[in-house]
Design a protein around this nucleic acid. Structure first.
Lengths: 243, 243
DNA sequence: AGACTTTTAAATGTCTGACAAATGAAAAGT
DNA sequence: ACTTTTCATTTGTCAGACATTTAAAAGTCT
């Protein structure tokens, strides 16, 4: 594990990269303890603060975890689906909020991805998934629900739909797409969206899943996507009239 | 921008989170300059190394960039699709390599996602996309190509297929799935995979895209997925016999 | 001998102070 | 007016120190 002397950038960047490469390359395995900060400083011929900056970079990516005390240190972290999921949601949210992505584009991407797991979900959904979806539908039907809670329930419903595909990789990939879209969705939720309409769509989807009817799931998702986009269009036109 | 005094964890973690929240919450906008390290240290009542560790955490997530010299400092970074893409590939690769994901699961996820953008790609593909795909097919047909180069070309082909959907959000989401799968794919590439077969599949896909034939694209991708999984099965059986 | 308490050593977390290097802007010189 | 020099600001890096946490070792009592 060595740093390239002619490499560019800060020392802490180079050291972080060297350790990252060692982890990805399998030279450091999960739960293995890294040398102590003092040893790393010796090894890389830098000071301890520099080593620490490198370690913090890795910690920010959940590649390592640190523990204080005797027999403590930095350990290679097993990246869990949950960690990866959280990172993806953060990244996707920032990406969408900072790059003025058109609503149509985001919406199209989201429903295209969601429809990708429709057939699998229709095949593999189990009673637990159905129960979760029914529960969320019931919650969405309650009149006293706040807009934020309705949105959260909406996300939970679609999450259950994705999870029903029983494919953790798919769930992970879609998590960011579905959850990062929530802020964008809010834009229209608080104005035009009809809760009855959404609940009706969700009920159709749940029914189709229960019946293992893949085509019906796909059709419902298509229509839900179309409905969502039409709402956004309406809003756009209304805004143009106002200004 | 303040840290919660009763919050848990390291100071650098808390400070990083406070700044992250400020960025996500819109209190710090893109390209805005953060206070200097000395000022942040004053503000949060910590030392400069602690502030620096927090900033390195954020830099690791591409949330900020730093510049030395007068009128330098840390600036809020516009998270580009490219940055997000790179992060996703890293995360996905680690996730798959550390969690013993079954090949079938990963493969299923990959092709389900890829098929999701098939109809869009069939509709919107332009001559550039087709040219890229034809070029990669041509490269894959050359006898002298190394296994690594064949794999890279394979990834480039599928990347072009995804990009043809002309939806950057979709491209970003799929990038991780396609590229992170490469190491897993290599597992079978170097043994059982028939290049002629793969090239034939790719040609069929490119032809279908050129003809705007969405159904044919989907069918080709289905068969390619089935072929890939069958190869993995073969390999598994062979391994069982050996041991 | 075994269970409990105390001590100790190792490691991370944090601080202070300092210097090096880069860089843009102001000041000086032509 | 233009070029060069100087300078202040800011990040990058270093050295050394102390605080805090933690597990293991040593000691002590029953």
């Amino acid at each position: 594990m060595k740093i390239d002397p002619k490499s560019t950038g800060d020392l802490s960047t180079q050291i972080a990269q060297a350790i990252r490469d060692a982890i990805i390359g399998g030279d450091l395995i999960v739960d293995e303890r890294l040398p102590s900060e003092a040893e790393l400083a010796d090894q890389f011929q830098v000071s301890r603060p520099t080593v620490r900056e490198a370690l913090k970079r890795l910690a920010a990516q959940s590649l390592i975890r640190t523990q204080r005390g005797a027999s403590g240190g930095a350990f290679v972290n097993r990246l869990s689906f949950q960690d990866a999921y959280a990172q993806q949601v953060t990244t996707s949210t920032l990406l969408l909020s900072m790059n003025a992505v058109k609503f149509d584009t985001a919406c199209e991407a989201r429903y295209a991805l969601e429809r990708a797991c429709g057939p699998l979900s229709a095949e593999r959904r189990n009673p637990d998934h159905l129960a979760t979806m029914r529960a969320e539908i019931h919650r969405q039907s309650q009149p006293g629900l706040s807009d934020e809670a309705f949105c959260a329930s909406d996300v939970a419903f679609h999450r259950a739909l994705v999870d029903a595909a029983e494919n953790p990789v798919l769930s992970y990939q879609l998590a960011g797409a579905v959850e990062a879209m929530q802020p964008l969705m809010n834009m229209i939720t608080f104005t035009a969206r009809s809760r009855e309409q959404i609940v009706a769509f969700h009920t159709r989807i749940a029914d189709a899943l229960e019946a293992h009817d893949s085509a019906a799931v796909d059709q419902s998702l298509r229509e839900l996507a179309a409905y969502t986009i039409s709402l956004a269009d309406q809003l756009m036109r209304k805004r143009k009239q106002t200004t």
